[in-house]
Simulated assay, not measured.
Amino acid sequence: MNKGLKCLLLSFAMSLASQAQAHMPGPAHCTRSANLLACVDVDGNAYSVNTVGTTLYLRGFEKDGHRYWAQTNSRFGQLTFFTGIASDGEAWVGYTRRVGWTTINRFSSSGGSSARFTCSRMTGC
């Protein structure tokens, strides 16, 4: 899985865990409406987040890999499941589980990447 995509997934996982706005690596220029956040970072990557109830729809473009991607996050209480696919055929699945101030995160991709990591508001990931 592309490093930029991993950072993006981690950033959104942390965002969901802390119930805060997304914090992306590096400065980005964003436009926001009631349900949509659209951003372009200094590297030329673009992404958007659309909220419908407890579901997040993420779309993006990675400049380095010249690929588009889409991800859907569905929240059920303290548990959030996500699935995604990229224009090069890579697919991924995972979940984020919130336990107090800690999140337990796991994902795997068809490209062979997988990880399990724990994040805390106090100590980070």
Rank of each mutant, 00 (worst) to 15 (best):
D41P: 04
R97Y: 08
T72S: 09
C7H: 10
S120Q: 13
L58D: 01
G94N: 02
T31M: 13
R75N: 08
L36Y: 07
S15C: 12
S120M: 09
Y95H: 14
W69R: 02
I85R: 06
L8M: 15
A22I: 15
Q78T: 12
H29E: 09
F82H: 05
F76R: 14
G53L: 10
K63S: 11
S109Q: 01
L37Y: 09
L37I: 15
T96K: 02
T31S: 15
L8W: 06
S74K: 13
T80Y: 01
A38Y: 08
D88Y: 10
Y57V: 07
S109L: 00
W92P: 00
M14V: 07
F76A: 13
A91N: 08
A17H: 09
L5V: 03
D43M: 11
S113L: 00
A86G: 09
G111V: 00
Q78M: 07
G4P: 01
H66G: 09
A38G: 13
F76K: 13
S33P: 04
N105Y: 02
R32K: 14
E62F: 07
V99R: 14
G65Y: 06
R97D: 04
A38C: 12
S120T: 15
R106N: 08
D64V: 13
S18C: 06
S74D: 07
E62D: 11
A28K: 07
T80W: 02
L36W: 05
R59Q: 15
